[in-house]
Design a protein around this nucleic acid. Structure first.
Length: 593
RNA sequence: AGGCGCGUAGCUCAAUGGAAGAGCAUCGGACUUUGACUCCGAGGGUUGCACGUUCGAACCGUGCCGUGCCUGCCA
């Protein structure tokens, strides 16, 4: 049988297939399969978001598909912006998505994790060799002067006056930079390439800057820190990365990475040459109704526009996790959107659909009334009650059934009754009959209103005892089925409903003097209290695994959507997040009018 | 303006010199004890434009147009 959901191959698969066919990168020694070694290289300066998930799925996914390996490596070359807390969260997120790297262990989340900073000595030694070979020099220009010398897009730059220093002088100066003899910003080590290159990255780029800063991993060992452009290709080389996958904006940097590695390998015997990875660029993920840069997400957190990095409205992995998204749904989403070299914006509904699809198959059904309205069954005596069977998941027979209590006083959804309904409305209104899910047919006989406000406070119905379980022996049909909970044993909960964080599909598109905060959706969070839940939900909790990662119980609240227990839940105080609503064609139709 | 990329249905992507397709979205229908799920169907295209090569071009070439990135001692 052919795989129905087989995703067509993308351009990176084609490259790897061709490489493997030619055994371009050799084979793994023990298995003999062609070598595919990738890596996911985050900088620990913020939390991961759904865009990173695309990259994680790509890199780890390729390794899985080709029986290769994918490293988790922190690109921690800038001590000023990086923090241990980010390292912890990134490791947690990658593991939660379900990926493991060489050396990963379940008892120690950080086992096998690589830090670029552990290569600092090796990189330094290579820099020294470049100086010896006349390929790098110490430059005393200030940052401003360096910029002025760089030229513009259309005009070539000017050589630094320090470009001609002797190797001996450069060696001495660089060693003293590393020892901390000079103040921050006073000198740099630069590659000697071409100040007239049309690619500005090649105009003698800075390799090292002086930074008297304590590093989260190397402490105070170093007073010079490598620039990303110098470091990145070398890290990949050290690790034998075959396919170095990155986003489109690094395309212009590729010639520089190539230059660095060729410069290192020049004149060296074979055993001292560094592996030269192949860089492949792809388009980063953009999603409608949200922002996707670490800086902007940091702003939202710092300015208090959201309640932290894991706010359920955030597109961060931790936010999505708290919101109730499953790793499976995120991986399915990433597989679904494909990989290309064209900048595109993915419609947010595709993320919604991915989680709906997974939760529809797996989430147990429960009845929950979010905006309660009392329903009284007038032909049933007060105090009588009976137990009825409710199916836990119609998509999964193995999930079984549960009992629900039925009595003469219930809660139904306020929206499920209208005194004067619009055309097409088939829930409760005077004279209309509906089915109470898994219970009985009830016919509306009227309602009670608050004389002061006119608000409906109670709906009255009669029930048909012959329709127990929801089937009518006489074959009569009802158009509507509504959910309900028994007033006598319902439990109270807070339920948080979420909408897009931004009201505009492209929040960053703002007028000249505008700010993307202007596009914030002030109604992105609606907290409902006093919601009435069936008692089987009493044990719901937001659990944590052995490493403290959130593992919330998830449910479908029938006719509403998928919900999970929030981390704010405590014994006796239940809080639920709406992960995503069910599709609602009625609401959509009403909205159009 | 210089360099490097990228333009196929509303959106995201296939088709790699041999009859332009899928998923999502939209609309319609069937089914239904969730206005859900599932199933069926429809509309939707000058493949950015022009010229060239070829028996034959979305695909190769040239030019143009549009668009993204690049002038951090960030990554």
């Amino acid at each position: 049988m052919t795989e129905i959901n087989e995703k067509p191959t993308h351009f990176i698969h084609e490259i790897i297939d061709a490489d493997n066919a030619a055994l371009k990168w050799g084979a793994w020694p023990n298995s003999g399969t062609p070598k595919v070694q990738t890596r996911f290289p985050p900088e620990p300066n913020g939390y991961l978001h759904i865009g990173h998930a695309k990259s994680i799925c790509l890199n780890f996914g390729l390794a899985e598909q080709y029986s290769g390996q994918c490293n988790l490596r922190f690109d921690d070359t800038n001590p000023a912006k990086e923090e241990e807390e980010y390292v912890r969260s990134i490791v947690e997120d990658v593991r939660w998505l379900g990926f493991r790297w060489p050396g990963a262990r379940e008892d120690d989340p950080k086992a096998g994790v690589i830090f670029s900073s552990n290569y600092f000595q090796q990189m330094y030694d290579w820099a020294v060799r470049l100086i010896e070979k006349g390929n790098a020099y110490v430059c005393d220009l200030t940052a401003d002067e360096t910029r002025a010398h760089r030229g513009t897009l259309t005009r070539p730059g000017k050589d630094s006056p320090f470009r001609g220093r002797s190797a001996a002088e450069n060696l001495d100066l660089f060693a003293r930079m590393a020892k901390g003899e000079f103040p921050d910003g006073s000198r740099t080590l630069r590659a000697k390439i071409d100040m007239a290159s049309p690619n500005l990255n090649l105009r003698d780029p800075v390799m090292y800057r002086i930074l008297h800063a304590s590093h989260h991993n190397t402490g105070d060992t170093w007073c010079v820190y490598p620039m990303y452009d110098w470091a990145h290709g070398l890290e990949d080389g050290i690790e034998g990365i075959t396919h170095s996958i990155c986003t489109l904006e690094f395309e212009n940097h590729r010639p520089l990475y190539d230059w660095f590695i060729e410069a290192i390998n020049e004149e060296e015997p074979a055993e001292r040459r560094i592996h030269h990875p192949q860089q492949i660029e792809f388009a980063r993920l953009e999603l409608t109704y949200t922002v996707m840069s670490k800086r902007k997400l940091l702003d939202l957190v710092k300015e208090g526009r959201v309640n932290g990095w894991d706010d359920p409205r955030m597109p961060t992995i931790s936010g999505l996790r708290r919101r109730g998204y499953t790793p499976e749904s995120l991986r399915a989403f990433c597989a679904d959107i494909g990989v290309a070299k064209f900048n595109s914006v993915i419609d947010h509904v595709r993320l919604d659909n991915a989680v709906r699809e997974h939760l529809n198959k797996t989430a147990p059904r429960r009845m929950a009334v979010l905006r309660p309205l009392k329903l009284v069954i007038t032909n049933l005596p007060a105090g009588s009650s009976e137990q009825l069977d409710a199916i836990n998941n119609p998509e999964d027979a193995a999930a079984g059934t549960r009992k629900v209590t039925f009595s003469n006083t219930l809660y139904i959804e306020r929206d499920d009754f209208m005194e004067t309904p619009p055309k097409g409305y088939f829930r409760l209104f005077p004279g209309n009959e509906v089915r109470l899910r898994y219970a009985f047919f009830v016919k509306c006989t009227g309602c009670v209103k608050d004389p002061a406000t006119g608000e409906v406070t109670e709906v009255h119905c009669t029930y048909d005892p012959a329709t127990r379980g929801g089937d009518s022996p006489d074959g009569r049909k009802v158009k509507g089925t509504i959910h309900w909970v028994n007033a006598g044993d319902a439990i109270d909960a807070e339920v948080r409903l979420y909408d897009h964080l931004f009201k505009s599909p492209e929040p960053e598109r703002v007028p000249e003097d505008g700010h993307y905060f202007d596009n914030l959706n002030e109604a992105s969070l609606t907290a409902l209290t006093g919601c009435k839940l069936e008692p089987s939900l009493a044990g719901a909790a937001c659990r944590r695994d052995a490493h403290g990662t959130l593992a919330p119980d998830r449910f479908q609240f029938e006719r509403h959507g998928y919900f999970c227990a929030d981390a704010d839940s405590a014994p006796g105080r239940l809080v639920f997040n709406r992960t995503v609503s069910l599709r609602d064609t009625w609401a959509k139709e009403q909205k159009k009018k």
